[in-house]
Design a protein around this nucleic acid. Structure first.
Lengths: 344, 344
DNA sequence: TTGTAAGCGTTATCAT
DNA sequence: ATGATAACGCTTACAA
């Protein structure tokens, strides 16, 4: 069943049917009604590929996600997906977890292969952006919550994210002001080159400001997983009891840390304070509730997709936005308890 | 840059280029190398639409999700997405949260519009499947973790899920055997017609077996959300202290219930026992850990996508699979404490 | 082993 | 207001 069949049944030419299909005004109402009825009756759906071939517009928006296991992104994908659908476009979702290519290559290939009209990257490392990196594609690109370092090529793409360094700095400072001197930080991976690198930097900066010493031993690795974080923390607690606070750079890891503390018969807050990062709702409902750096994820999602459509429709040019985070103070972080030195 | 340009540059006919593109064997190695080099140098990517138009194979797999906010599905989408990519197909993800159409109509429209080669539905209600419901499409369909009622048309689609009634029955029985007599159940919505309906049925069945009374007052509504569950439970605890256990039909709601109990100065396990449903890892790491009905979500995801490809490749026919759940016993459910009646 | 040309289902241009 | 037809970029007989 194609446009020709419909035309034949209706006793009109294919162009008339096409006009009806595309809501052109120059069709007699009567004819339009008749054709519409036939289309409906025969369950005809236009062939998208033929349309795209002709119009050169796939109406496909790509969403490239690094680390989909991150529940933080799931919700954003949801918001983005709904908006894409609303705009009459199709979402093509591709994960990028197990690819060891440069994220850049994956992105460029993705756009070309799927002939995307635009793409949003959720997470990932784009540390080697060059001035001409995006010259070979003309689909607008929005990098959301990704790690970039270079200032090159900034006029060729947009980015939306938070100030990771600053957020980590404030979180750490908050702990310091509570009297903590021996603070550990839990990163995702050893030598994390992504956002973890910036958060570590903010952490160190706060420490430096107060002349507190920082050693590699204060770095814990949690693989961004609850389970890993749990094991790492348990091991730590058996060896180094002089730590009074742990700053985990994801809420998922903060949960693992919390449970490890509990299972080690220590009291969260009293014995060891915790701060997480992300602002997932479990941090609020955990027992005890967990202090966290809340990212404005709904806003990030909405801005990303709206801005992308503005770019597509050429209503706006590329821009780079840093949104504010909020330090949500909860039960897991308390003033450090004064340890009376019996020998003193 | 199209196939003609490449052919011109290489000094060959378009069909030779096409043969190279499609890995046909009947091309001289020398010619192949030359063409491959030109393709690479000129960054040429074949136009998918033209290809599809000709071959009538989009290589698109649809994933239609109801309730993507459910973190339970996110992980499954991840597994499914990776497999689709691995098979050289593209995943088209569509959410179905705010659609009030029948899920059936959405599904059929989705397949036709995107010309899908196959589709997996994650969640949703397909209670009105007729014998000929799927006759108008020829893409194989796998319904995963969805609610079906009718036995009609079973040879036209596949399904993979768990036995919701049985699972709920066993969970309830476990509570009863711990001595609980006044058990509340928390459903997603009032008059839940989906899986909630079956879980409620299993719940009632267990109660009936022990001649325990069931009243509408034992039904709580939590909207499948942590927050809602929290509020509902808090209200309940202010009014009805004769309940000794709550069975929440999702882990997310179980967390809300747990926190509400804690905030009401009651002890989970001692005062009120909790059972959740799904087997998300937070149930293990919550404080205290929460008993739950664990669904084999990885297995469900893997089976769904593998079976779909078997159907596409006609290696197998439609089938209906019920997987086993596991009741994971944890700290949140304990023997009911004996209440000494002081007046007795 | 390679080239020529028809045809996939649309849309858009140009007549009428 | 409507119809005939070229063109989009590819694959695949068929011919050479």
């Amino acid at each position: 069943m194609n446009i020709k069949d419909i035309a034949k049944i209706a006793g009109v030419g294919v162009s008339t049917v096409s006009r009806v299909l595309n809501n052109h005004s120059d069709v007699k109402d009567e004819t339009r009604e008749k054709i519409l009825k036939i289309i409906k009756d025969s369950n005809y759906v236009p062939n998208n590929s033929a349309r795209i071939l002709k119009q050169n517009n796939t109406k496909n928006i790509g969403v490239l996600v690094k680390g989909v296991f991150n529940p933080f992104f799931s919700e954003m994908i949801n918001i983005i997906g709904n908006k894409i659908h609303e705009y009459g476009y199709t979402m093509v979702l591709q994960q990028n977890d197990y690819t060891f290519d440069e994220d850049m290559d994956t992105l460029l290939g993705f756009i070309k292969e799927k002939r995307l009209q635009g793409v949003i990257c959720l997470g990932g490392n784009f540390i080697d952006i060059k001035e001409d990196s995006f010259d070979s594609v003309d689909a607008p690109i929005v990098l959301t919550s990704v790690n970039t370092i270079s200032d090159l090529g900034k006029s060729k793409y947009s980015s939306i994210g938070i100030d990771n360094k600053k957020s980590a700095y404030h979180a750490t400072k908050y702990l310091i002001n509570l009297g903590h001197k021996n603070i550990a930080i839990m990163l995702g991976e050893k030598d994390d080159l992504g956002i973890g690198w910036w958060r570590l930097k903010g952490f160190k900066e706060a420490l430096l400001e107060y002349n507190y010493n920082f050693s590699e031993e204060h770095i814990l690795i949690g693989n961004y997983e609850v389970e890993s974080a749990y094991k790492t923390t348990k091991n730590l607690l058996m060896e180094k009891p002089d730590i009074s606070a742990i700053f985990a750079i994801s809420d998922a890891m903060a949960i693992g840390v919390a449970k490890a503390i509990i299972d080690s018969d220590l009291k969260i807050g009293q014995d060891i304070s915790i701060i997480g990062f992300d602002g997932m709702n479990i941090s609020e409902f955990y027992n005890p509730s967990i202090t966290t750096v809340k990212q404005p994820k709904e806003l990030m999602a909405v801005m990303s997709i709206n801005h992308l459509f503005d770019l597509i429709n050429k209503k706006e040019g590329h821009k780079h936005i840093l949104l504010d985070t909020e330090l949500v103070k909860r039960e897991s972080s308390k003033e450090v308890k004064i340890v009376e030195n019996i020998l003193a």
